[in-house]
Simulated scan of single mutants.
Amino acid sequence: MSERIYKQQDELAKLIERYSGRDGVHATAIPSLFFTRRSKVTGSNFAVYNPSFCIVVQGVKEVLLGQERFIYGPTDYLVASVDLPVTGQVMEASSQVPYLSLKLEFTPGQILEILSDSEVRIDPKENAKRGMFVSRMELSLLDAVIRLARLLDNPKDIPVLAPLITKEILYRVLQEQHGATLEQIAIEGSSTKRIRDVIEHIMNNYDTSFRIEELSEIANMSVSSLHRHFKEVTAMSPIQFQKQLRLQEARRLLLSESTDAADVAFRVGYESPSQFSREYSRMFGFSPIQDIKRLRTINV
């Protein structure tokens, strides 16, 4: 790691510490920017990553997408180009050197604006690509991230400068080796854009059963093409994707509303409470009742 990158990361770590203060995920005055601080290694955390650019400034994180593992630390960045249910785990953290990270959310519209401005030639017929990747952090990209975070010290500059610097960050990611992954989410007619439409449909209707033919119509693909492209983007089938969404929402409801497990099973779309309990145990390692008791004990 070069001396300049080391100094930049040290400055960014101090900024995140200053605007975090304690463990947890912290919103900032920049609506799309979030900081995370953890003072100890965590267990598996289940979440849905929306389109976002993520960097770890201190520590190491592991993210599982389906059966695929992504590990990144201070020399890397991670991008999720579409909504993806994942399992995350902080692997290196301590009270002396806490895990510190930054997440910048973005939209396909922002990507499309950059592509329009830069007049990049795009092939809409290019095959769908995995909706998550890890890449090497370059100095020019880190410099833009630092400038965005510094705006928190000058709130009056945020409305004008934050959108411009965010655009620069996304532009620099588009210029690097995985840039085509981002390009494809914004291009009408591309395989990735059509899979994104299917993902959006499942996200909005996760509690409702669907026919695979219905999804293939949304994507304007054959059933076999839909399965192939969906798995390429998300590392799972549409059914597996929906199941993860259902179980994550069920866990959230059980933890926040102290409601009955059978009632939650029906609310998230299961017809059989016993099937719900089996699949919940398979995903989280405990039955619904055991899991919620355990989580409440941990969070006390």
Rank of each mutant, 00 (worst) to 15 (best):
F241G: 01
A219R: 01
K193H: 02
L170E: 04
Q175R: 11
E183Y: 00
I212H: 05
I187D: 01
S274K: 02
Q275R: 13
S225M: 05
E214Y: 09
S209N: 15
M203P: 00
N204M: 08
E257H: 08
Q248C: 12
R252F: 12
G189M: 07
L182R: 05
A186M: 03
E232R: 02
A186E: 03
N220L: 04
F230D: 00
M236W: 08
S225V: 05
I169T: 10
G179N: 03
I187V: 15
E200M: 08
S256H: 10
I169Q: 07
Q248E: 14
K231I: 13
G269W: 13
H178A: 00
F276N: 04
A186C: 10
P273T: 02
T181P: 00
L254I: 09
Q184K: 07
S190Y: 10
S256I: 13
E279L: 03
L254E: 03
I202W: 14
F276D: 14
A261D: 01
Q177K: 11
S224D: 01
F266Y: 15
A262N: 13
R194V: 12
A261R: 04
F241Q: 06
V268P: 00
S277L: 01
R172N: 01
S277G: 09
E183T: 14
Y206W: 11
R228N: 07
R267K: 15
